[in-house]
Computed example of a mutant assay.
Amino acid sequence: MTARDRSRERILDAAEACLRRDGIRRTTVQAVADEAGLSRVYVYRFFPDKATLISAALIRRDEEFWSTADARVSAAASFSEMVAEAVLMSSAAPLGPLALDLAEAEPQEYAEVMGTFVHEVVPGLAGFWVDQLTAAQERGLVRRDVDVVAGAEWVIRVVVSLVGVPGRAVDITDRASLVAHLDAFLSPAFADA
């Protein structure tokens, strides 16, 4: 981990501590900087505003979530089932327990900061999918010629879209419907015919 990465993690740890203690409304960039033992100007080098900082802190999920996600996604029998597991988990608790608590306690403030969610989530979660796609290639579920870095970004965009903008073509709460939809529209890009 680089010094920049360590600083970013330190800032996000501080933001999470402030959110747990003070909620969204009372968490400020200055409070996060103070909690991290850094200057406010330094925090702004990483996050241009409070909303981006808070959304970044909220998308960091605890180790238990990632362990469960890895187990469920990796155990899936097909690529479509892998993505379906991610959609099902994300729709049940899109940002983990802290986010759910804040959404309930401060719904208006929560809605305001989540506009920056997609800007943070795509690069942040792509690493998870790089690992999943690489393992899926080894299992023969994904073609060997698939660029796993580009594919990971595409998969997370599909997951975010399905969870964040549900439509009529697929019921994202129904595993069978979700897998059938992904088999028809996503798997052809990743799996051998």
Rank of each mutant, 00 (worst) to 15 (best):
A84R: 12
A75C: 01
P107R: 02
H119Q: 15
E109F: 04
L102M: 00
S67K: 11
V87Q: 08
L98Y: 12
M82C: 05
A69Q: 05
V113M: 12
W66Y: 15
A103P: 02
L95E: 08
V113R: 03
A69D: 06
G115Y: 04
A105V: 01
A92K: 13
V118S: 12
L98D: 09
V122R: 11
V113N: 06
V73I: 15
A76Q: 01
V83G: 10
S74Y: 00
A71T: 10
F65D: 10
V113Y: 09
F117E: 13
M114F: 13
A77D: 11
A103F: 06
P97S: 13
A86P: 00
A75P: 04
T68S: 11
E104T: 07
A93F: 03
A93E: 15
E120Q: 14
A86G: 11
E112D: 14
T68F: 01
A99D: 09
A71F: 02
A103V: 01
S90N: 12
L102R: 00
L88T: 02
L100A: 15
V122M: 09
G96N: 01
M114W: 05
L102F: 03
V118R: 15
D101M: 12
V113K: 06
P97K: 13
V122T: 13
V121M: 15
M114S: 07
D70K: 10
S90A: 13
A105M: 00
L102N: 06
T116F: 08
A76E: 00
V113H: 08
E104P: 01
V121D: 13
L98G: 11
E81A: 15
T68G: 07
T116S: 15
S90W: 01
G115H: 10
S80H: 02
L102A: 01
M89D: 06
P107Q: 04
A93C: 15
A71R: 14
S78V: 04
E81G: 14
V87H: 02
E106L: 03
A92Y: 04
A93R: 15
A86Y: 00
G115V: 13
M82N: 07
E85H: 10
E109M: 08
A76K: 05
L88K: 04
A93V: 12
S78C: 04
G115M: 05
A99Q: 08
S74R: 13
A77E: 11
G115A: 08
L95V: 03
T116Y: 12
L95K: 11
L102E: 07
L98P: 10
V122G: 10
L88W: 07
L100K: 03
R72G: 01
V122Q: 11
S80R: 06
E120A: 14
E106D: 08
D101I: 05
L100C: 02
V121C: 14
A84V: 08
H119E: 14
E106M: 05
A75S: 14
V83L: 09
E64C: 03
V87S: 07
S67H: 09
D70V: 07
E120C: 13
P97I: 10
E64A: 14
